[in-house]
């Protein structure tokens, strides 16, 4: 059994009077595909934000790849995300003015490297997503499925230790959603990608190695 790459211990998040996450503890092993399920508003997206370093918990601690990030500053967290974490959002979150390859290479822009190297790495990963021919297209010219594949490519470009996916098929029709899930499953199976996916669809959750349920801000299993 491999080591836990992500550990969240006794995490709580409150917004004013409202407690969204209550004493949640979670661990994800390297190469594991875990889905986090629960009803809308149960706190799973907030927990994902805390675990990925997008948000700081009110209490508790988060460790990714042996490094505790709970007390890190905004900029330290940004650098940590750049080097260790990939994100796939429900609404794709592509930059509308940049082409598919530039969106893919977005995490590499602040890193000192040649334009050719950035382009090469983006092209390579877009080819793996079967989007090489759409590299120069703007997001507006891509279908929903293509946009999400660009977002997956962007999440993978920095070779992250763990990928966080928040309802990755939420904005897609069933067929396209299935295709995206097939890609994520393939990446997990063939490349050992560690994935923590938030979903409210039990059918999708079942494709994961393990399912963690949440209710009213608490982790049930």
């Amino acid at each position: 059994m491999s080591e836990a790459i992500l550990v969240g211990v006794d995490l709580t998040k409150t917004f004013g009077e409202l407690t969204v996450v209550r004493g949640a503890s979670i661990a994800v092993r390297e190469g594991e595909f875990v889905s986090l399920v629960g009803k809308s508003g149960c706190g799973k997206t907030t927990l994902l934000s805390i675990l990925s370093g997008l948000e700081r918990p009110t209490s508790g601690r988060v460790t990714i790849a042996g490094k505790e990030i709970s007390g890190a500053s905004e900029d330290e967290l940004a650098l940590f995300r750049r080097e260790n974490v990939g994100f796939i959002f429900q609404s794709f979150n592509l930059i509308p003015t940049l082409s598919a390859w530039e969106n893919t290479a977005l995490p590499l822009f602040p890193i000192r490297m040649t334009e050719a190297e950035r382009r090469r790495r983006a092209a390579e990963i877009l080819d793996r997503m079967e989007l090489g021919h759409r590299a120069e297209h703007l997001p507006a010219a891509l279908s929903g499925g293509e946009k999400q594949r660009v977002a997956i490519a962007r999440a993978l470009i920095n070779n992250p230790k763990i990928v966080f996916a928040d309802e990755p098929t939420g904005n897609l029709d069933t067929a396209t959603g299935d295709a995206i899930m097939a890609i994520l499953n393939r990446l997990h199976r063939e490349q050992g990608m560690t994935l923590l996916m938030v979903t409210h669809e039990p059918e999708l959750a079942k494709t994961a190695d393990r399912v963690i349920r949440m209710q009213d801000g608490e982790v049930l299993s």
């Binding site: 905004e74 900029d75 602040p110």
Partner: peptide, 16 residues
Amino acid sequence: AREIGILKAVGWTGAD
């Protein structure tokens, strides 16, 4: 704001 949120999420620092 959305664009800035995306940039920060994928690892851009405030200075970037």
